[in-house]
Amino acid sequence: MKLTTKLMTSAALAMGLTGAAIAQDDPFQIGFVYVGPIGDYGWTWTHDQGRLAVEEAFGDDVETVFAESVPEGADAERVIQNMVLGGADMIFTTSFGYGEATNAVAGQFPDVYFEHATGYLREHENVSTYSARFYQGRAVIGHIAGQMTESNIVGYIASYPIPEVIRGINAAYLHAREVNPDVEFRVIWVYTWFDPAEEASAAQALIDAGADVIMQHTDSTAPQAAAQEAGNVYTFGQASDMIQFAPTPRISSIIDNWGPYYVRRVGEAMEGTWAQSDTWEGMTEGMVVIGEMTDAIPEEVRASALDLMEGMQSGTYHPFTGPINRQDGTAWLADGEVADDGTLAGMDFYVEGITGEIPN
């Protein structure tokens, strides 16, 4: 684990510091806890871009602190606590598995603001949760993938079997199947957010199984590199643009745009208007963005993908609109019925047509 600050060393934070009270004219200090390295060019990199946006927006009025590659467990609680003891006024914990640690520390420090990404636990009034409607972006790349595959096999590298990931698989599959009824999804669960070797191995296994399009819900660029080496395999950037792999294998991407949210919430905390919330924003708000579609995508496919995006941005189309059945063939959504947020937030099932089981 590495901890970096403008004015504070990692050694000082590890000691917990004494006299952590902040003088009135001191900068407002914000801590960020990351599950991966900021150089992953994926999930953590995009959150760190949000941190930099906060610095740019508020200048010398703020000071930011970050800890990278923090495991989801006891280590996270220690890191969060040490950030508070080091003077943090506000902390963003940026991975699902930090939920319990975030709330445990929040209960000890009621005057500090806590924001937990992709979580649902808000056990104290000083804890908010926030996430993006990633499934909107996955609907778009599924739509593209279904038309780009020649083998009719799309590979999907999945991290952990939590609702966020399951939603993404379902959204991508539904929209791939809509344009290609013969498409097949093959999912490999790697049980990690960031492990380049494991991700590369999963990508190669999918390629060996015939997949000529690879999607990922993991954070490194290793699947992109594996596809590039294999040739004739298309990929999509995950969380960040991963544009260094364009024009192929990366033909588009899902970009997580955290900066506006971080700037808004820090501003509210500094002004004293911050209130507990559960934020879930998507394409309409600009939190989910589709990266450049390269010329490898035929013009008619690009145009139909843009139409799909426009529908979601305007609110006239929802990716989970019936008729949709569950994997076992039982009805889930009737014709024209739209999934409610509660069901989506707790999604623990595959839709009809996806083979395999969701692991525990």
Rank of each mutant, 00 (worst) to 15 (best):
D307G: 12
L333S: 09
F92T: 09
S10T: 08
G59S: 10
E56I: 00
G50V: 08
L13E: 13
A14Q: 14
E125R: 08
V213W: 07
N232K: 12
Y113V: 01
N170H: 13
A74W: 04
Y113F: 10
T149L: 09
R167S: 06
L206K: 04
S10I: 13
I80Q: 02
A205S: 13
A222T: 10
G329R: 04
E229F: 05
D40T: 07
Y135P: 09
I153S: 12
L333P: 07
T46A: 07
A331Q: 12
A20G: 10
T221N: 04
G353L: 02
Y34K: 05
R265C: 05
T64R: 08
Y113D: 03
A275Q: 14
W189H: 11
Q216H: 12
K6H: 11
W45S: 11
L306Y: 02
S314F: 11
D61H: 14
S69M: 07
A11V: 12
V62W: 06
L17C: 11
M90K: 12
G329T: 03
W274Y: 08
T192H: 00
A11F: 15
P163S: 00
W274I: 04
A176I: 10
F349R: 00
E337H: 11
L13S: 11
E300W: 14
L121G: 02
G356A: 07
I30L: 05
G50A: 06
D75T: 05
Q24A: 15
A230Q: 04
N360P: 00
D335P: 14
A171R: 14
Y130W: 10
W189Q: 03
Q108M: 11
I169H: 01
S10L: 06
I169V: 14
E198N: 04
D256W: 14
R264S: 10
G73Q: 10
R133P: 00
A145P: 06
V112H: 03
A23F: 12
A211C: 12
E357L: 05
E310C: 02
A172W: 07
T9Q: 03
T218P: 02
V65I: 15
H116F: 07
R186L: 02
M242T: 09
D348H: 05
V289T: 05
E55A: 02
D61R: 15
Q313A: 05
D48L: 11
A67D: 09
Y317C: 00
T284S: 15
G286E: 02
